[in-house]
């Protein structure tokens, strides 16, 4: 069949040779960017790299960056896979609030802490499953499907907490947010474990490849005998699960569940982290560790702005600058410019 639709948009993109993992790790733009941000931080604050050991755990600005960046990193782990399928999940911030609210409310009403934690993770899974069903069964565009929970989620969280900031003193929940393991803050340990686990699962099983295949070309995936539905369901459910973990950490950190502010706008940070990590919003190739690195870049900038005395909101300006730079670099216009450069390979 001839396809008479005239496509007016330029479709060619420059081939991006895929770098090999270990050999070129240190020449990746993300790694260089992180190094640059850390270097600037060090110049602003010479004690930046100092790490001390106190009361059985590490302290220092660098540890702080890891610790503060962990919730977004965890969100980014789930978000990476969603974006790899050419989707997006706008609801993860709201799901964080729901998860924190669930755990806090249950614990304060006398439910044993481990049960509360499992219940919180369960609600996260349910929220993710809901998104997945909207995307796969009702075939609603991801951005629209997840918008529903983004709008209603905070209301649900408040319904659970009945509008209060539910504070708790349960040691397990507090430990998740502020404790330490082998000297490292728990959020960092959890994020690192989740990153390793998720990476192992997607790379040791065929999930990673199949997700990428669905993201690159959904139609070809169907012709190759791949069923995308179950994959999408899993991916969205996992994103909800990651959001629930993040929600627990944030709640544990402030020893309470704040349905209004927990995870507010973090979905956007998570998307940004994934994009910085090199996963295209058009789906396809993804890297979980790189997305985590992206989250760390965001947090390192955040910390840098704080220690240099700017107001924390200035961070937003920097973030928007980062997005603009990435967009311009990825745009067809710059691709054309690069191709015109003398010596550029064809």
């Amino acid at each position: 069949m001839t396809r008479p639709t005239v496509d007016l948009r330029p479709t060619t993109q420059p081939p991006m040779p895929r770098a090999r993992p270990i050999a070129s790790f240190f020449t990746r733009p993300q790694v260089i960017a992180l190094a640059a941000v850390l270097l600037v931080n060090w110049l602003l604050f010479p004690g930046f790299f100092t790490i001390t050991w106190q009361d059985g755990r590490f302290f220092g600005s660098l540890i702080d960056v890891l610790n503060r960046g962990a919730p977004v990193a965890i969100l980014a782990i789930g978000m990476t896979m969603v974006i790899a399928t050419k989707g997006v999940d706008l609801s993860v911030g709201a799901v964080m609030a729901i998860s924190g609210a669930t755990a806090a409310t249950l614990v304060t009403s006398g439910v044993p802490a481990p049960v509360a934690v499992f219940a919180a993770l369960g609600t996260g899974l349910l929220c993710g499953l809901w998104n997945g069903i909207l995307v796969t069964v009702l075939e609603i565009q991801p951005i629209i499907a997840t918008l529903v929970l983004m709008v209603a989620g905070r209301g649900l969280a408040q319904l659970i907490t009945e509008g209060y900031i539910v504070t708790f003193s349960d040691p397990l929940l507090i430990f998740i947010g502020t404790g330490s393991f082998l000297g490292f803050p728990m959020p960092v340990v959890i994020a690192a474990l989740l990153m390793i686990l998720a990476t192992l699962i997607v790379r040791r099983t065929a999930l990673g490849l199949l997700i990428e295949a669905v993201g690159v070309n959904r139609s070809a995936a169907r012709f190759a005998g791949l069923s995308a539905g179950a994959l999408l369901l899993i991916v969205y459910t996992f994103a909800g699960f990651c959001a629930a973990i993040s929600g627990l950490i944030v709640a544990g950190d402030i020893r309470g569940a704040d349905a209004n502010n927990a995870g507010l706008w973090l979905e956007l940070d998570a998307i940004l982290a994934v994009v910085i990590g090199g996963t295209s919003l058009m789906g396809g190739r993804f890297s979980i560790p790189m997305a985590v690195l992206g989250a760390m870049i965001i947090q390192a900038m955040n910390t840098g702005i704080l220690i240099s005395g700017f107001s924390p909101e200035f961070n937003l300006v920097v973030k928007s600058a980062v997005i603009i730079v990435i967009l311009v670099l990825q745009s067809p216009i710059s691709a054309r410019l690069f191709r015109r450069l003398p010596g550029a390979q064809k």
């Binding site: 070809a220 005998g225 190739r285």
Partner: peptide
């Protein structure tokens, strides 16, 4: 282009993808 190849995936992955889909998620090549 539309129904056949996975443009961004490697030659190797394009060759093994159907077998992998047939084997299922957990029996990864």
């Amino acid at each position: 282009k539309i129904d056949g190849i996975f443009g961004d995936l490697s030659v190797r992955e394009n060759i093994i993808i159907a077998l992998q889909a047939k084997l299922g998620w957990f029996r990864a090549l």
